[in-house]
């Protein structure tokens, strides 16, 4: 009953405010998440959808399709009808980088519409507490003297980020891919690998003094380690800008696109998403439909320019 009134009020309010009739989904919206259930993308995505359900009275059916590093989900969204009945939740790297890493990608960044972001993943390069280096310069000096360090990598985008920074500063490393950030963290905690780039899960270990941050891999310093400089500040010349990104099939009708983008924006602004992002050490940010499209295009151009220099990307 309470829900009924919330919905009615929300509807009445929306009708009163908008001069033209606002777009409304006619049936529950299918949301295809390109990561497994329970992962960080899944968690923040479901939380946001729940918020939209509360605020707008829309309904969502969530499907997790984590196959082929998100490519299956991206292709499914690309091929879905462009009427607002299907959305996808992936990350920037899935569109700006992944299609250029395989010879025969079945989707390209231009094939989809981007409707907004929920947050930005805060990556950091971390090492065990007793490692004999504290910043990128010391790491470079260390590898010049002692030979390469081992880098446990969770995903191609982190591999390539490490490669870009290392090329710039002369760090020698060997990359060992793992299938999850928890696994990479275990390798560093157990002393099996020297460093890894991690997006949030490392923070409790930094706070409890088991791990330390060598460099923050995103644009701004982190609250939990304010004394550590970003890779840009340390001369690494690259930072990772990876967002939880909402996508839709290409050429969504303008009214549907606007209604969906607005719904996302309202949900991302809610205190719940703010609290949640803070607790998981990510930043809440919505670039909006235009902003996220520009960002994906800019990042994909940058990757395409740089990829020929890479030894790790084949």
């Amino acid at each position: 009953m309470k829900r009924f009134w919330t919905v009615t009020c929300a509807l009445a309010f929306a009708l009163a405010l908008s001069p033209a009739q606002a777009w409304e989904p006619k049936k529950p919206i299918r949301v295809i998440i390109g990561y497994g259930a329970g992962g960080s993308t899944d968690a923040i995505g479901r939380l946001m959808l729940k918020k939209i359900e509360e605020q707008k009275g829309w309904k969502f059916i969530v499907e997790n399709k984590s196959g082929a590093q998100g490519a299956l989900a991206a292709i499914e969204v690309k091929n879905a009808p462009a009427d607002g009945s299907v959305l996808g939740l992936l990350s920037t790297g899935n569109f700006a980088l992944d299609p250029f890493l395989t010879k025969s990608s079945q989707y390209m960044p231009e094939d989809l519409d981007y409707v907004g972001t929920i947050g930005k993943i805060e990556y950091a390069l971390i090492a065990a507490k007793d490692a004999p280096y504290n910043n990128l310069a010391e790491l470079a000096a260390h590898t010049k003297k002692n030979g390469p360090i081992s880098f446990s990598s969770t995903g191609k985008i982190l591999d390539l980020a490490m490669e870009r920074v290392s090329d710039k500063l002369g760090i020698a490393f060997v990359s060992a891919p793992t299938s999850g950030s928890a696994q990479s963290l275990q390798l560093v905690l157990g002393g099996h690998a020297n460093v890894t780039i991690s997006g949030g899960v490392h923070v409790p270990y930094v706070q409890s003094g088991k791990l330390k941050v060598i460099a923050v891999m995103t644009g701004a310093r982190a609250d939990y380690a304010p004394e550590v400089g970003t890779s840009l500040e340390q001369g690494g010349g690259f930072s990772i800008e990876n967002y939880f990104l909402l996508v839709a099939p290409k050429n969504l009708p303008a009214d549907a696109r606007k209604a969906i983008a607005d719904a996302i924006d309202d949900a991302v602004k809610s205190p719940e998403i703010g609290d949640y992002a803070a607790k998981t050490f990510n930043t809440r940010v919505n670039l909006g439909a235009k902003g996220s499209t520009d960002d994906v295009m800019a990042q994909s151009r940058a990757w395409r320019e740089w990829l020929p220099n890479s030894k790790l990307a084949k």
């Binding site: 497994g36 259930a37 968690a43 923070v203 609290d275 607790k279 050490f281």
Partner: peptide, 15 residues
């Protein structure tokens, strides 16, 4: 992995 996700959804960071 899903239980870890459920913890995270509830705002508890496993570790």
């Amino acid at each position: 992995a899903m239980m870890v996700g459920a913890m995270v959804i509830q705002g508890i960071v496993p570790g």
